[in-house]
């Protein structure tokens, strides 16, 4: 009972984590993109504390890092999708049930057909064999 509870909790936790990962990644992609665009603003007549070239370098570096963040978030999403796919394939109950019942039905049908054909074959061969036996045992050449 407690094992079942922990299992369902684990499942809930797992699916929640998938949700969270997805939201985080998408949020990260959008936010980083917005920040890159923001950084493209040229400040008008602002006396900054930092030297201009340094600020330029810093901005370039920040854009670089944010772009990498966007790419990383995208790749995390891909990994998430692959995880979801795997989970779906392995744990989708209705489809597993259906697969098992379909397989069982198919196999049983095939087996019944094989057996019925064998029975028909048996009957045919039995009648042929009767005549063959008759012929063989009545002949003088054995």
């Amino acid at each position: 009972m407690s094992q079942q509870k922990t299992l369902s909790q684990n499942k809930e936790a797992l699916l929640k984590s998938y949700n969270k990962r997805m939201k985080d990644d998408i949020k990260s992609m959008v936010d980083n993109f917005i920040e890159i665009i923001k950084l493209a603003r040229v400040p008008q007549d602002e006396d900054s504390q930092v030297l201009r070239p340094l600020q330029n370098n810093q901005d370039q570096y920040e854009m670089h890092v944010r772009a990498c963040n966007v790419v990383r978030a995208g790749e995390c999403l891909m990994k998430l999708i692959s995880d979801i796919k795997q989970y779906l394939v392995l744990n989708d109950f209705p489809s597993i049930n259906e697969a098992i019942s379909q397989n069982t039905r198919f196999d049983k049908n095939m087996q019944n057909e094989c057996d019925s054909r064998l029975c028909l074959l048996r009957d045919d061969v039995a009648s042929e064999l009767y005549e063959l036996e008759e012929e063989y045992y009545s002949s003088a050449y054995k």
């Binding site: 699916l15 109950f93 196999d107």
Partner: peptide
């Protein structure tokens, strides 16, 4: 997936047939 899956493995199989 939340509606359809459980954490446990399916105990059935079509090995018999």
């Amino acid at each position: 997936l939340t509606q359809v899956s459980t954490g446990q493995a399916h105990e059935g199989s079509s090995y018999a047939s």
